[in-house]
Amino acid sequence: MTDLSYSPASSGSSATKIALRWGLYIMLGLFALFYLMPLFVMVTTSFKSLEEIRTGDLISLPREVTLDAWRTAWSGACTGIQCEGVRPFFWNSVLIAIPAVMISTLIGALNGYVVAQWRFKGANLFFALMLFGCFIPFQVVLLPMARMLGLMGLAGTIPGLIFVHVIYGLGFTTLFFRNYYVSIPAELTKAAKVDGAGFFRIFWSIFLPLSLPIIVVTVIWQFTQIWNDFLFGISFSQAGTQPVTVALNNIVNSTTGVKAYNVDMAAAIIAALPTLFVYVVAGKYFVRGLTAGSVKG
């Protein structure tokens, strides 16, 4: 902690100190309002009736709380021609995210284990190639991937989206595990080898039990990325297989009928709930993933 506020250097009277302290808290509070305001507006709007939205203002609390918008958002709002709300698309996202997170984390763990502990000629090259792949703008693979999914018979399907998320998630998952395993002394692997343990045995009985923190970080990172993905979702899905982000965008930007802002907001909150939940429950790991994933090569 850079404890500057109580330093002997800032030799003012205690009254100025208290005033400074108050100023500090007021500034922090104003910034907190800036970050909370959109969430507050979303929540209050979602509980208002359309009538109240038209006559009231943005930041007032609902005069009469109604759950109609939530009901419509979940099971009645129109995404194009379909009017089933976000529910089916929410489940699509679940069906895409869970296997994609599991597979990419498992492969990333094995890759990281090899690159960090079983160095051989070419392993570093592999890692460099993977690392580079983390940074490409996905636009550069969209066209060939669309054709490839077609050739594989996976165009517009949920397995197709799982496949895409696994492939382009591998760079980060490998990176996370590699950076974690590289700090485990190589002697451990050597000793286990002398004792006759094989590649998978060492992974399973030594490395995996040590890996819980990095597994949590990776799973959270991958889940957030995949749940919040829009580009792959809109490029590689069709009417029945769209993830929730695409459905949300379709609801908000649908041009038919009356604009139901309360339904838009309820749908947006529903789409945001899983990742918000993860953030609130495991914020520490979420931040660790963010910093590790973005800072380090």
Partner: peptide, 11 residues
């Protein structure tokens, strides 16, 4: 301050 980072850009 950090929670918006957990949201989808669409949200």
């Amino acid at each position: 301050y950090l929670y918006p980072m957990a949201l989808s850009m669409i949200v």
